[in-house]
Write a protein that binds this DNA or RNA. Structure first.
Length: 155
DNA sequence: ACAATCGCCGCGC
DNA sequence: GCGCGGCGATTGT
C-alpha cells in the first residue's frame, strides 16, 4: 500500500495528513490546502462531527523510548478533557519540560491529541498558532465531536 | 562528546 | 504578578 497525502479544512487552517491504511505518519497545519482526501475519522473530526480518532494509529507511539511513552499517555486523555504537562510527566516518569518538548515535536497532532495537554496555569503553547489549540478544545468541550459510534448507537 | 534547544514548574519576592 | 534556577531528552556541530 502506498503512502497517501491529503488535506481537509479546520476553520481558517488546512490540516495536511500523510497516512497508509490506519497508520498516520504526519499531520500538520498549513495555510494552503491540497486536493486529496484525508482519513474518514480526521475528516469527521475537523468538521465537528462524531468521530473516533482512536481507530487511527500514529507512528509516534511505537517503541519504548520516552517520547513514545509520552505520546501513548497523551492518547489516553479522553476527548473533551485535558491534562497538564506535569501530570503527563509524572505518569511516564520524566520532567514537565520533556513533555513540552515532545509535544512541540509531535509529528501527528490530532491523532496524538497534544492540544489536550495544557500548562498548570494557562493553556500552554501550540504551533503554528495557539489559536488552533483553543479552537480544538472549544470544539471538544462543545461535545458533538467526542461522541463515539458506540454512544451514537446507545442513545 | 558538547552545547543548544525547549509548547514547564515551583519558589521567593 | 514578576524573575530565576532546575529539570531531561533530543538534535546539530
Amino acid at each position: 500500500m502506498a503512502i497517501l497525502t491529503g488535506s481537509c479544512r479546520f476553520g481558517l487552517w488546512h490540516v495536511h495528513v500523510s497516512w497508509e491504511g490506519n497508520t498516520v505518519y504526519r499531520v500538520r497545519f498549513a495555510r494552503q490546502g491540497i486536493g486529496n482526501a484525508v482519513p474518514e475519522e480526521i475528516r469527521r473530526y475537523c468538521a465537528g462531527r462524531p468521530s473516533r480518532l482512536t481507530d487511527l494509529q500514529s507512528i509516534a507511539t511505537a517503541g519504548e523510548g520516552v517520547y513514545p511513552r509520552i505520546y501513548r499517555a497523551v492518547r489516553e486523555i479522553p476527548c473533551g478533557k485535558t491534562a497538564t504537562y506535569s501530570e503527563i510527566a509524572i505518569s511516564v516518569g520524566t520532567a514537565p519540560r520533556v513533555v513540552g518538548l515532545a509535544m512541540s515535536r509531535n509529528p501527528t497532532p490530532i491523532v496524538v491529541p497534544c492540544h489536550r495537554v495544557v500548562a498548570k496555569t494557562g493553556i500552554g503553547g501550540f504551533s503554528p498558532d495557539p489559536a488552533i489549540k483553543e479552537a480544538l478544545l472549544a470544539m471538544e468541550r462543545e461535545g458533538t465531536v467526542c461522541r463515539s459510534e458506540m454512544r451514537e448507537i446507545n442513545r
